[in-house]
Design a protein around this nucleic acid. Structure first.
Lengths: 209, 209
DNA sequence: CAAAAAGTTGACGTGCCGTCATCAATCTGA
DNA sequence: TCAGATTGATGACGGCACGTCAACTTTTTG
């Protein structure tokens, strides 16, 4: 008789427990941050929400900040493949902008879906915004994408860094607003942001010529 | 003989001491945040930087977060009159956008001037971003201004909240980038942001018609 | 000038911090 | 299969920052 092995059993018991603990801490942190706010939360609050001992926390994270970063990075990690797909499939600047904003706003809506249903404050509105290196990387990827797309149409001389900053700033701030609306409508938000960005780039191109 | 009274002497000794203490705490906080970072700073660090006793801190602020808010609000308080002037003098949407972005980027550059000279990290890059009620108010003022300006040219039906969010998002993110560049060039940044926003609004108007 | 009010001070009890010696569970390899 | 080695969880502990408060000093009031 052949035995099918659950991939999770591939790892030893030890490794699985480690992953489970890490996950438990992150999940507990999510819950507590939402319940009493990030600033008010201390490490004991987080660990009390799990059934681990206080010392165990430090086997996984150095601080509350590091937990927050890990949560953010998890999001970024899930988002990057979506952006990769956008990059691979986009034909030109316009389609890239629509697809990229679309990916972001849709992702944001989905990430916050549960919180939206419950009416609890969502992560992005918890009141803290950290810029992790992971996020920096995504910025740079977008800048590189834009550079390629702009080069193709002879606009490589535009200020890519500022254009990227403008697009990301729009996405962030509009994303927050989007989450406050009912129903949450990523498509409309996408059209709006993409139109503005595209028109902005065209205007820059015209005045720079 | 008439006696000219220094306005600062108008208040009793007590009231002057209070203001001085408050200021001392805020200034100390600025220094310490810049030196060791916001997260790492604790209340004792701040008051050790003054020559007040630990208990005195609590006569002025409840927490480190409240100090940070007060610092932010001080900035906002200084910025609002500038925006008021912009509002009073702007003739139309275009002049409003140029003046408003100009006011913001210039203000940001000046606020961070000292830090830029010293090469120390500036407040806005300390890594935390809080949205205080004061800032919310400024958002709403800008939204109201835009609504008036857009109404005048028959574009009152556009999504003012999203336009405001887009403009503010651009300003924030581009502002951060601006501060990283040498020389810091608020004028160029202003032109860039105003052009993009204006073209964006025109594009929205066209597609919505 | 004396009584009242305001405000500062730093010592104190409390609770969170991060560490670490101990122990239990898992893994290794013979 | 088992014994020794390794990994990692545990929670008690010393240290430190927290926020409070009774005592004290300075200013204001009448």
């Amino acid at each position: 008789m052949t035995v099918r092995v659950d991939p999770n059993l591939r790892m030893g018991k030890r490794a699985r427990a480690k992953e489970a603990n890490r996950r438990a801490i992150l999940e507990a942190a999510r819950v507590v941050f939402a319940r009493i706010g990030y600033e008010a939360t201390n490490i004991r609050d987080i660990i009390r929400e799990t059934n681990l001992a206080s010392g165990t926390f430090y086997n996984y994270f150095k601080s509350k900040e590091e937990v927050f970063e890990a949560i953010s990075n998890d999001s970024v990690k899930r988002f990057r493949p979506l952006l990769q797909k956008v990059r691979d499939e986009a034909q030109d600047l316009e389609s890239y902008l629509y697809a990229a904003f679309g990916a972001y706003f849709t992702f944001l809506a989905e990430e916050n879906d549960e919180a939206i249903q419950l009416g609890t404050p969502h992560m992005s509105l918890i009141g803290v915004r950290v810029d992790t290196p992971e996020m920096q990387t995504v910025s740079e990827e977008i800048a590189a994408d834009l550079e390629i797309a702009l080069d193709k149409i002879g606009l490589g001389h535009l200020d890519i860094v500022y254009i990227t900053a403008a697009a990301i700033g729009m996405a962030r701030e509009m994303g927050d607003q989007m989450l406050k609306r009912r129903p949450v409508d990523p498509e409309a938000t996408t059209k709006f942001a993409a139109k503005v960005t595209l028109a902005g780039i065209e205007a820059l191109a015209k005045s720079d010529r």
